[in-house]
Amino acid sequence: MLKINNLHAKLEDEDKQILKGVTLEVPAGEVHAIMGPNGSGKSTTSYVLSGRDGYEVTEGSATLNGQDLLEMEPEERAAAGLFLAFQYPVEIPGVGNMTFLRTAANAQRKARGEDELSAGEFLKLVREKAKTLNIDAEMLKRPVNVGFSGGEKKRNEILQMALLEPKMCVLDETDSGLDVDAMRLVADGVNALRSPDRAFLVITHYQRLLDHIQPDVVHIMADGRIVKTGGPDLALEVEKNGYADILAEVG
């Protein structure tokens, strides 16, 4: 599904190299986690994959089902099936959540040469998804993320994910700022979306989210590289001993 090979990236405005050769492969149906200390390049990985301005790829490649992600505009990557759940979802005043979702869904369908959904069809679909995810339909009428609590914003991200049905979901520190109950709701949402033809890359600072979203593979990132890869127990090890031991071990 997602193949990242020797990815190097720097800030566009400064000569600061942030990613220094990330190599990673997430097959369909699997959930991978990236953990690592602050400033290790976890969030940058998600931005470079999704095409945010301000970064320059200097070397390496990233493909989604064989398609070169780095050659595409952000909206083309989305249509190709890449979804990023934001660490800080953005507010868009005056734009109804429903309108935003439908505009996005239809833009993607159009880009893929599929028929657009009518208002009725879309409404039905949204209601259905919101119900499975235990999300109050009231949230759909409000402007995008405006006045949402931290938990609501993250659940809105999950709802968008459910509606857009991406192939590859990247979750950027989705657990940040959430209390235990809110985190469980978000994790339940992600678990409900797990399927054999969809893959997840869960970026997190702490192990606690991984109690709820069981990963198949855990990667440790430090100084712009993946320094260690292992099973779910690697996350537990980090939780117990911190990053220092692992970092010392890999030099």
Binding site: S50, G51, R52, D53, E73, P74, E75, R77, A78, A79, F83, L84, F86, P89, V90, I92, F100, T103, A104, A105, A107, Q108, A111, Q160, L164
Partner: peptide
């Protein structure tokens, strides 16, 4: 960027 990441 938020809009574009959603495909708009």
């Amino acid at each position: 960027f938020y809009c574009r990441q959603r495909g708009i």
